[in-house]
Amino acid sequence: MKLFTAIAVAMLSLPFGATAFAQSNPSGLTRADVMAQLQQAQAEGFVPAPKDDYPPSEATIARNREIYAIQHGGDGAGAVKTAGVQLNQAVPAAN
């Protein structure tokens, strides 16, 4: 009798457990939206940021902007000064 009761309780609780994991409120962002936001953050210099420098400092943002301009062929990418060293040619992106 106890076995029958346990099986009945388990069978009745399965449909309720399945709805607990269903997403009832979608975020509204598509994968393309998230990728566009990430690319914008990279272009603005906010990404990447080291763990010990959050929020990123002005120096980190400036460095990230320079790296992004070099990798993506931005304006003045051939004459960017980074860490006190003048770069004469754009460095190819390592993909």
Score class of each variant (00 low, 15 high):
residue 62 A to E: 12
residue 5 T to E: 11
residue 93 A to F: 11
residue 65 R to F: 02
residue 73 G to S: 05
residue 48 P to L: 08
residue 21 F to K: 13
residue 83 A to N: 12
residue 16 F to Y: 12
residue 92 P to H: 06
residue 3 L to T: 10
residue 3 L to Y: 10
residue 10 A to Q: 08
residue 67 I to P: 00
residue 3 L to F: 11
residue 92 P to E: 05
residue 73 G to N: 06
residue 93 A to H: 08
residue 90 A to I: 10
residue 25 N to I: 08
residue 47 V to R: 03
residue 68 Y to G: 02
residue 60 T to K: 11
residue 54 Y to I: 08
residue 48 P to Q: 06
residue 11 M to W: 13
residue 59 A to S: 05
residue 42 Q to K: 14
residue 1 M to L: 11
residue 68 Y to R: 02
residue 26 P to M: 06
residue 39 Q to D: 14
residue 86 Q to K: 10
residue 12 L to P: 00
residue 85 V to Q: 10
residue 46 F to A: 07
residue 73 G to H: 02
residue 65 R to P: 00
residue 50 P to D: 12
residue 51 K to V: 09
residue 2 K to C: 06
residue 94 A to Q: 12
residue 27 S to N: 14
residue 62 A to L: 09
residue 31 R to T: 08
residue 9 V to F: 10
residue 17 G to E: 13
residue 51 K to C: 03
residue 91 V to M: 12
residue 69 A to F: 01
residue 37 Q to L: 15
residue 14 L to K: 08
residue 76 G to P: 02
residue 95 N to I: 09
residue 28 G to S: 07
residue 89 Q to Y: 10
residue 54 Y to P: 00
residue 95 N to H: 09
residue 64 N to D: 03
residue 82 T to C: 07
residue 29 L to Q: 11
residue 31 R to I: 09
residue 48 P to M: 07
residue 16 F to L: 15
residue 42 Q to N: 06
residue 6 A to C: 11
residue 46 F to C: 02
residue 77 A to S: 09
residue 50 P to C: 04
residue 16 F to R: 07
residue 72 H to L: 00
residue 40 Q to T: 09
residue 45 G to D: 01
residue 83 A to F: 09
residue 91 V to H: 03
residue 46 F to S: 04
residue 42 Q to T: 02
residue 82 T to M: 14
residue 82 T to L: 13
residue 86 Q to S: 11
residue 65 R to Q: 15
residue 38 L to M: 11
residue 81 K to L: 13
residue 76 G to I: 04
residue 68 Y to Q: 04
residue 2 K to Y: 07
residue 79 A to L: 09
residue 4 F to R: 14
residue 89 Q to N: 14
residue 55 P to N: 08
residue 93 A to D: 06
residue 1 M to C: 09
residue 68 Y to K: 02
residue 4 F to P: 01
residue 46 F to D: 03
residue 71 Q to A: 13
residue 8 A to Q: 10
residue 12 L to Q: 04
residue 65 R to K: 15
residue 36 A to N: 13
residue 4 F to D: 14
residue 72 H to Q: 06
residue 46 F to R: 06
residue 88 N to E: 12
residue 89 Q to S: 13
residue 27 S to I: 06
residue 24 S to K: 14
residue 74 G to P: 01
residue 79 A to M: 11
residue 69 A to V: 00
residue 19 T to Q: 15
residue 51 K to F: 07
residue 13 S to H: 06
residue 9 V to N: 07
residue 23 Q to F: 05
residue 90 A to L: 07
residue 90 A to Q: 08
residue 55 P to C: 09
residue 75 D to G: 02
residue 33 D to Q: 13
residue 37 Q to S: 08
residue 71 Q to I: 01
residue 30 T to P: 09
residue 37 Q to P: 00
residue 34 V to L: 13
residue 56 P to I: 04
residue 77 A to C: 15
residue 95 N to M: 09
residue 64 N to L: 02
residue 63 R to V: 00
residue 95 N to C: 11
residue 81 K to C: 08
residue 79 A to S: 15
